[in-house]
Design a protein around this nucleic acid. Structure first.
Lengths: 336, 336
DNA sequence: ATGAAAGCGCTAACAT
DNA sequence: ATGTTAGCGCTTTCAT
């Protein structure tokens, strides 16, 4: 595939003038069916996508829609928070952020992304979960020679610049918090083995007895609230009920807490609960959640920085930002 | 103010070449302090902003950063949902969405917006709350002759195209739901008088006795969760406690529910609760909230449509989309 | 129905 | 330190 296919290239292949190609691209009338087809064939053969900048300049329209909305700082969700941070970082540098939404289920989403990248010619691209783990997306970006930064926990660090949360310290603080409150029987509900292992090791380091820890694996596909309720039901049925539970997401913790109230338990008196994310839900439930917050705003800013000042050597750079452990009233001294 | 100030205009006023102006704009070295100042003066005198498209084309960089994130459908917040809808609607039409974040507190935010609008040359702009009620923003857009659509409830309908939720039907369903369950003493906690009045009238129409309704005004400035807790505390202290409460936001309902559990009340047995938004929080709390959902995705799509096909006559158009009333278990037959 | 030429507003490369 | 020239890739306008 060639790097930058132009209108002219298409015109040459189709054996028509550039203007005719332009007519086809813009769906103007006055094009015979036969030439239209010839042009369409040439376009898809070359993978042509019009250059947005050139188009905008000539047609004096931008093909961009703006949306004016307020800065929302508190109570946000993961992706929204990343977007906010990136928008601000861009603005400070005279850039703008464009969201490329991808549904990974749909066939053709990768192709659509490629088309979009072709025409937008981004200065750089930030890749979040789950695209940051998607081989096809990363391959595509590299093939198109587009600078990109992955955001979130990633393996193969050499592959590109990345910005990740560092959970070790936060999880250690959490472990010490629970142990110092007197918790011994602690349940860990996890989706990723990585985080389970980190927390397990932190708890042991904080003095917990490995034999008293319980691990419950949960599917990422499941709705977190339902998962939290099922988790609660499982825990309440246990002969030796833990006094504290860590869940992999605030939503799951919320489901757990709801189930507990419903069944006459009092949180945190009967069960301490720890969430993850510090999203909107963390403060909406009662009691508000002890949780862990990723520095999403700073992570997004760091990603923009990496994108904008190129590495001196060719090596992939990595920025690691510590998560923040937040104590609220969903954890307390166990009653037993 | 002139419509489209160009580099050349600045150059002429400053008495230098276009290239020199370009150097100043791009912060290149090799510009004497005196000419730099002269150029800067000319730039601000003319209100010059470089044309993004021209710049991109010449420099072969877009000044745009892309961010690839997944489609998130469930559990979203108001602005995020609007953005999602607009992003998709744009994509379907070969456009892209750029977020212009505005913090209305800061001085200079309007100027920044103006600069951004100048250089982006949006095909159209979607204006959400609270900017949709901001005279300065609307004046600016009109003065710059930029097509815009307001989204959300607006007055002065003649002023521009708009897309609004229609709450009457949804609130009527809510009113009938409560009355049919047997609720008579109902509290309405509101921020906007408009919505309070709508609900009041709906309740009366559904057969409620106006004398049994209680109205509690809340400040929009207050954190909704705290507001909900205070609301709960006020309601519990009442001699004649209502059997149902409507709150203006799910967050406030969440605060209310938390306070209730904490003080030994059972929701919905002792008190039915109704929220508004159907955001992430609505399903995270226990019991999940009976609430009202604005069709944010459709509203955003409608806004993009209005932007793209111009009105035949010059009249402002208005699209009204009904909200959806959603029954969950936070409302039930009163126990008394 | 199709083509040729000019130019959108800026920056790159090369002057001086 | 500053100016000149030639494009960037498309659409417009005007031919044919």
């Amino acid at each position: 595939l060639s790097q930058h296919v132009k209108l002219e290239d298409v015109a040459r292949l189709a054996g028509v003038s550039a203007k005719t190609v332009s007519r086809v691209v813009n769906g103007e009338a006055n094009v015979s069916e036969s030439t239209k087809q010839a042009v369409d064939r040439a376009i898809s053969a070359l993978g042509y996508k019009p250059n947005l900048a050139a188009r905008s300049l000539a047609a004096s329209r931008s093909f961009l829609i703006g949306i004016i909305s307020p800065t929302v700082d508190n109570f946000y969700s993961y992706f929204h928070a990343l977007h906010n941070g990136a928008i601000r970082a861009c603005r400070e540098r005279g850039l703008h952020l464009v969201a490329e939404e991808m549904d990974f289920d749909t066939r053709g989403s990768l192709q659509r992304l490629e088309g979009s990248l072709r025409q937008m010619r981004y200065d750089g691209v930030i890749v979040t979960h789950p695209a940051n783990k998607n081989k096809h997306v990363l391959d595509l970006l590299e093939h198109m020679k587009i600078r990109y930064v992955r955001i979130g926990p990633v393996s193969d660090l050499h592959r590109s610049d990345s910005v990740s949360p560092d959970e070790t310290q936060g999880l250690q603080q959490l472990a010490e918090h629970l142990v110092s409150l007197g918790h011994r029987h602690i349940a860990i509900a996890y989706v990723e083995a990585r985080r389970r292992n980190l927390l397990r090791d932190s708890l042991v380091k904080a003095g917990a007895d490995l034999r008293h820890l319980q691990f419950v694996s949960l599917s990422a596909a499941q709705d977190p609230i339902t998962a939290g309720r099922e988790l609660a039901s499982g825990i309440l049925a246990l002969p030796q009920r833990p006094t504290a539970v860590f869940t992999y997401a605030d939503d799951a913790a919320a489901g757990l807490i709801g189930y507990a109230w419903e069944h006459g338990l009092n949180i945190p008196r009967d069960l301490s609960v720890v969430g993850y994310d510090d999203g909107q839900v963390a403060q909406a439930v009662w009691p508000p959640l002890t949780t862990i917050r990723e520095p999403l705003d700073e992570m997004a800013r760091a990603a923009v920085s990496l994108l904008l000042d190129p590495a001196k050597d060719g090596n992939a750079r990595r920025i690691v930002l510590p998560v923040k452990f937040i104590v609220r009233s969903s954890t307390a001294v166990p009653s037993r």
